[in-house]
Design a protein around this nucleic acid. Structure first.
Lengths: 129, 129
DNA sequence: ATGGACCTTCCAGTGCAGGGAAAGGTCAAG
DNA sequence: CTTGACCTTTCCCTGCACTGGAAGGTCCAT
């Protein structure tokens, strides 16, 4: 399978595939006589895993960790379980932070909608913020 | 006021102050005879505004817009109101996205905690993701 | 006069995940 | 035989908000 076919089949771009190879996420494939990359069918499953992991919000570095464990012949279950729990904690923290921020911004927005701007003072730049 | 004093008074760094000047957020201050930046007291209020805006999640580009309007002699009230509402919408979207993602990751995490990993298959890399 | 705390400029890098463009090789169809 | 769709490598660029470091000037106290 050539790089363009794999890119289309996996829903990504040739650029990204070369980048993943460079980044150690995809093993360097065989080359045909003319130097073209020649991917085996497994690459597609691997890219599916990468895509699902990205969708779950994992970084390429985290995905590479999992792949390295798998490539060492070990099932990465324990590591993936830990990653999922950590990711859940991170998400909870991010959501809480954003909700707190939303609260602050909502108050500012309400104030801006109700307070009369006539006594705006140039030295404070803007009384709404 | 020299740059170090202003940095300390505003709770930032000299590096950041030069960066803000370069980025058009702080007007270029006067210079003393020896070439040192010599800030007027207004710079402190301006930095306070920048800090509050950053806390509300605005980008430097957005803050610069507001400052440019103010510097043109116009009260930026209307623009700030719009920015606040847009920011609120953005936050709502971000929060909703993260909550949807949290839901997905929670399901994956639950599955990983309950499903027996014995029938893991190397071709799918990891059955949890 | 010398040390240290300031200040100046300019250049370059950080992290993340790629994207763009140049300059060239290869292959099948018309 | 040429056109166009592929493929190759290499290098640099993006956005965001800074941060680090080098090389040098200035000021004050000791």
């Amino acid at each position: 399978m050539r790089i363009g076919e794999l890119a289309e089949a996996s829903g990504t771009t040739t650029k990204t595939l070369r980048f993943y190879e460079e980044a150690g996420l995809l093993p360097a494939p065989d080359r045909t006589a003319n130097g073209y990359r020649d991917y085996a069918a497994e690459a597609l499953a691997r890219l599916g895993f990468i895509r699902r992991s990205r969708t779950a919000g994992f970084t390429l570095a985290q995905i590479r960790e999992v792949l390295d464990i798998r490539d060492a012949g070990v099932a990465p279950c324990r590591h993936v379980q830990d990653l999922l729990e950590t990711r859940l904690d991170d998400l909870d923290r991010q959501i809480a932070d954003l909700q707190a921020l939303r609260h602050t911004v909502a108050q500012l927005s309400n104030a801006a909608a109700t307070v009369d701007p006539t006594d705006c003072d140039a030295t404070t730049i803007c009384r709404y913020l």
